[in-house]
Design a protein around this nucleic acid. Sequence first.
DNA 1: TGACAATGATTGTCATGGCAGTTATTGTTT
DNA 2: AAACAATAACTGCCATGACAATCATTGTCA
Lengths: 156, 156
Amino acid sequence: MADVYSLDSYEPRQALGHLIGRVRAQLLAAIDTELMKDDFLGPLEVTSSQLIVIVSLAGRECATSASELCKGMSYDAGAMTRMLDRLEAKGLVRRSRSPEDRRLVNLELTSAGQAAYPRLREISMRVLNRSLRDFTREEALLLESLLQRLARNVGH
Amino acid sequence: MADVYSLDSYEPRQALGHLIGRVRAQLLAAIDTELMKDDFLGPLEVTSSQLIVIVSLAGRECATSASELCKGMSYDAGAMTRMLDRLEAKGLVRRSRSPEDRRLVNLELTSAGQAAYPRLREISMRVLNRSLRDFTREEALLLESLLQRLARNVGH
DNA sequence: TGACAATGATTGTCATGGCAGTTATTGTTT
DNA sequence: AAACAATAACTGCCATGACAATCATTGTCA
């Protein structure tokens, strides 16, 4: 298949790469704005980056290890350590060494973390729905599938 | 129009927000990988973030101020100062106080910066074309237009 | 069993980007 | 002209993410 962009016409500042970066930044900023307005999450200064960790932990009943979290979201292990430091300091997550394998750190939400989860889910959904307000369900699915194809291709 | 996501089915980890973040990270990583392999850009450790600044400066013949650059790409002024520190240290960009308005800092590419530009443009285009290799031109344009609609909506 | 590899978490270092506050310069207003 | 607002660049502070190095623990293999 022919290349989409050619040296004659390629404009780095208008092309897909930048556009994706802009959309991502705007989405995160919009979610952060809504989080700050929340009675419960605002004072805790929960951010859009911390959202995904709490959501991932809420999805399972049993305790999960940090490395398992990292694999599941292709996240740097060092970044995860410090992310968990912040979430633990806010009282949303509890760490404990696994008795079976003392290299592992088991993670679970505290009661505050469990209380935060439905609010985080609702807020992120609201921002997405608002951003997709003139999209049909088919257009949204199309966008998702195009992005998934892109994601599969990038790594070659 | 009805909401795309509903509380019943919304899965934060699968939805659009996360997907966009993943695609962006993968694209930037792929560009960084190619930049490191380049004979000229690799030793200078030019990154995908610095790419857009150099590209923006190459687009105009006359000197541009830093604030104008920030406006054009909705970029934080403080981040721009430090970005320019790094680019100046690498000898790619030259700063000079504007004689007309001494608040302004005029920017221009050095000869090394001008030599870097076509390589940066070619590398970012190659990564994008590779990532879009099974897309028709129509599909790529569709993806762009859907993202642009999304970008317009997010800010409300 | 003892050497060694593999794994998980942590830490250090760096680039990035956002926000608030500061300083220098310019424009405006009385 | 003096006071004030507006603007541009810079600085400090912080969260984020990537990479490399280190340490403790576990698995493997001679």
